[in-house]
Design a protein around this nucleic acid. Structure first.
Length: 561
RNA sequence: CGGGAUGUAGCACAGCUUGGCUAGUGCGCUCGGUUCGGGUCCGAGAGGUCGCAGGUUCGAAUCCUGCCAUCCCGACCA
């Protein structure tokens, strides 16, 4: 196509005289916002990119044997009530009632509707296994949309669901989908990582998250030297070397701390380092009160605490429970003299002369030596990992990076099929629930991730496979007839050859056109100027590497075939 | 849902504290000229219900009240 104003609209309105660093940030923010915050859907550039991404996904899904369906966007609320997820939708739910009073949910995800569909159409083991997928808009009334495309109320998702005869079948479907995802994200030009994850509320047994490292992401992940990732929610650390800590000479001493409840208040008023304080949190583990100890500069990780306590359910105690456990209001809990089981982090046991709550209102206690003045029931790893903690496999210190999730695959098992009667008759005429898996890709996020990963201070450097155009023709001076004629000829020939080409035929200065071409990031630029044309040559420039070469005019098409 | 901020031309913003000529600036846009291998220069011009509603006042972009929207921080998040 030829250049149109709507190609970039206000993308160019980034202040060019800004400081280098802030300019880069402003540019990136402008690009991401413009191309992805919803504007993309009517900008030719963004729409073309989404189309290419969708085509790649579709090709790979079909190659894997999955079949495409298109599920209704409106789901009967009854279905959601059957699986118990209607209430858990909570604030995210967008729903309507029709005139007859039936309620419909605007689909935030499609497990229910597809399970219902399959339940009504598949009856025999002969029809399984089957994997169905769709690419369509999902709706979630998110509490907090942010960063343009990263979290939005409406977004395009590729979701797939597998139905198998048994666990072995599910393993096969799941592993196949994992491979397909590797291929899709690789083809889209993304450097991604795979994280084993907790399947959380979805139920089911196992899941993998596909992540890209991206400062605009929402997930914090610990990464070790060998590249292994783990969400900070579950990341573990190696036990630090045990120190033989000489107990402090003083004995524990209670002192007055009126109205000082938080670590910060104690630290600033009494000149104590947070590191030298014991943060004591009271939890309820399977109905029993326990205390968790970490140093004042760290946070308890409830997932690890729950595991260490061997509990199924864990939540922080409310004010009344804290008072029952410690005999003091919230803010003055400490391990000394505490009657409930104490779980202490390794860090706590490696220090001495600590300050902690005295289990009395407005009082703390100092000169505490863990192991002498109190004995924890269990010691272990119960705090959130930090940068510099040693990786559990001993490979080196952990880095904490921000990531964005672009895909997630789950083994669901029978969680949905059992509740929605997605059953089949097996060889023995027994009625058996299907075993399910589900697999999602955030299509818009691939676009955002690609921009994040491939850009410089001039603009985007699209990976070839998802670039909005393969090549852009830039004329140095549109007023010169020879240039115009050569450009029109090359443009026509490339189109005939089926090359996706953009022709910048604006009567603008060369600098303006170069800058715009760099900004929108089309991988190859064909630069047609008077100087080279005299020798019957044009310049071909690679956006990503910046390398340029000269080619004879009649050879150009053969380069793109 | 809690905390903070913002809303003025297509875009980015100034003006508001201390109410007062006809509401400005830059980019973009239109026209004329000039220039033409990395964001030319000059001149002329178009474009605004100052988020919405109400109030105070001789007079409101500016002060007050309510509402709406957006952004940021948090809580939440198949």
């Amino acid at each position: 196509m030829r250049w149109t104003k709507s190609l970039i609209t206000t993308l160019r309105n980034v202040p060019k005289d800004a400081e280098a660093a802030s300019h880069k940030l402003a540019l990136r923010a402008a690009l991401v916002r413009q191309l992805s915050s919803g504007v993309y859907s009517y900008l030719p550039l963004g729409f073309r990119v989404l189309n290419k991404i969708i085509n790649i996904i579709r090709e790979e899904m079909q190659a894997s044997g999955a079949e495409e369906v298109l599920l209704p966007a409106l789901h009967p609320a009854e279905l959601w009530k059957k699986t118990g997820r209607y209430d858990s939708l909570g604030e995210d739910k967008i729903s309507f009632k029709n005139r007859a009073g039936h309620e419909f949910v605007l689909g935030p995800t499609h497990e229910e509707i597809i399970t219902d569909l399959v339940a009504n159409t598949v009856k025999s083991f002969r029809e399984l296994p089957i994997t169905l997928y769709q690419i369509q808009t999902k709706f979630r009334d998110e509490a907090r949309p942010r960063f343009g495309v990263i979290r939005t109320k409406e977004f395009i998702m590729k979701d797939a669901y597998s139905f198998d005869l048994n666990e072995e079948g599910l393993d096969k479907s799941y592993n196949l989908m994992s491979e397909v995802y590797h291929r899709i994200f690789s083809r889209c030009g993304l450097s991604f990582k795979v994280v084993q994850a907790d399947s959380g509320m979805m139920g089911g047994k196992m899941s993998q998250e596909f992540m890209v490292i991206c400062p605009y992401g929402e997930d914090r992940v610990a990464i070790s030297k060998d590249g292994t990732l783990a969400s900070v929610e579950i990341a573990r650390r190696a036990e630090p070397p045990k120190k033989e800590v000489e107990p402090c000479a003083e004995t524990p001493e209670v002192f007055d701390t009126p109205d000082a409840r938080t670590i910060e208040e104690i630290a600033s008023r009494y000149q104590v380092k947070p590191k030298s304080m014991i943060k004591t949190l009271i939890y309820v583990a399977d109905g029993k009160l326990i205390a968790a100890l970490v140093t004042g500069d760290s946070e308890v990780n409830e997932v690890k605490l729950r595991a260490l306590a061997g509990a199924k359910a864990l939540h922080q105690a409310d004010a009344a429970e804290v008072e029952q456990a410690t005999g003091a209001p919230v803010g003055f809990a400490g391990p000394v003299g505490l009657k409930i089981p104490v779980y202490a982090d390794w860090d706590v046991m490696n220090r001495t002369d600590m300050v902690t709550g005295a289990n009395q209102k407005d009082k703390h206690i100092k000169h505490v030596h863990p192991g002498r003045d109190f004995q924890p029931a269990v010691t272990g790893d119960i705090r959130l990992v930090r940068k510099g903690d040693w990786a559990p496999d001993g490979s080196g210190p952990l880095e904490i990076v921000t990531t964005m999730e672009i895909g997630h695959i789950f083994k669901l098992g029978t969680r949905y099929s059992a509740q929605l009667d997605a059953v089949f008759l097996n060889e023995k005429s027994e009625t058996v629930p299907m075993i399910m898996g589900c697999y999602g890709i955030g299509v818009n996020r691939i676009l955002a991730a690609a921009i994040e990963e491939h850009h410089d201070d001039k603009g985007i450097k699209w990976p070839a496979a998802i670039a909005p155009f393969e090549v852009v023709i830039v004329t140095i001076n549109q007023a010169i007839e020879e240039i115009r004629n050569a450009a029109e000829k090359i443009y026509a020939d490339l189109k005939t050859a089926g090359v996706d080409v953009l022709y910048d035929d604006r009567d603008e200065r060369a600098g303006v056109k170069f800058n715009d071409a760099d900004l929108i990031g089309i991988p190859k630029q064909i630069i047609i100027g008077e100087r080279n044309l005299k020798e019957n040559l044009v310049e071909i420039k690679d956006r990503s590497s910046g390398e340029a070469s000269k080619t004879a005019v009649d050879q150009v098409v053969s380069l793109f075939r």
